[in-house]
């Protein structure tokens, strides 16, 4: 079972108190982008075995969105952090590097 801590209200609970919101740190492609980039933005997602970054919402609690870094194979959560950021904070990346040396996720490592 996935156990998450909401960084907004500090509550730790299992996944049924939250709602998954899909992949994190997507960059929107607007009218200026070409078809392929727009198609990628809409449909192409990571499907990693290992380190993954996701958006979650504390739906039964404070109602706020946040980000979570976790492992898809062990359900280990490396950390949760604010939704108001476009990339994982360095502290979270360092923690992942300690536990999963050499990890790569999209452009982050």
């Amino acid at each position: 079972m996935l156990i998450l801590t909401c960084p907004v209200c500090g509550v730790t609970s299992e996944e049924t108190e939250f709602h998954a919101g899909g992949e994190a740190h997507l960059t929107r492609v607007g009218p200026a982008g070409d078809e392929e980039a727009f198609g990628d933005y809409l449909f192409t997602r990571e499907n990693p075995r290992g380190v993954h970054f996701e958006r979650w919402r504390h739906v039964y609690g404070c109602g706020k969105w946040f980000h979570a870094a976790r492992c898809t194979t062990t359900l280990e959560v490396f950390g949760t952090y604010s939704a108001q950021t476009t990339e994982p904070p360095q502290a979270i990346r360092d923690r992942i590097s300690q536990k999963r040396p050499g990890w790569i996720w999209r452009d982050f490592a």
């Binding site: 609970s13 108190e17 609690g61 404070c62």
Partner: peptide
Amino acid sequence: CPVDLSPGAFTPGMFRRTR
């Protein structure tokens, strides 16, 4: 509820929204 309700973890004075 998916809440740690052991006597040491949830005490009078706390407030919890949950499922």
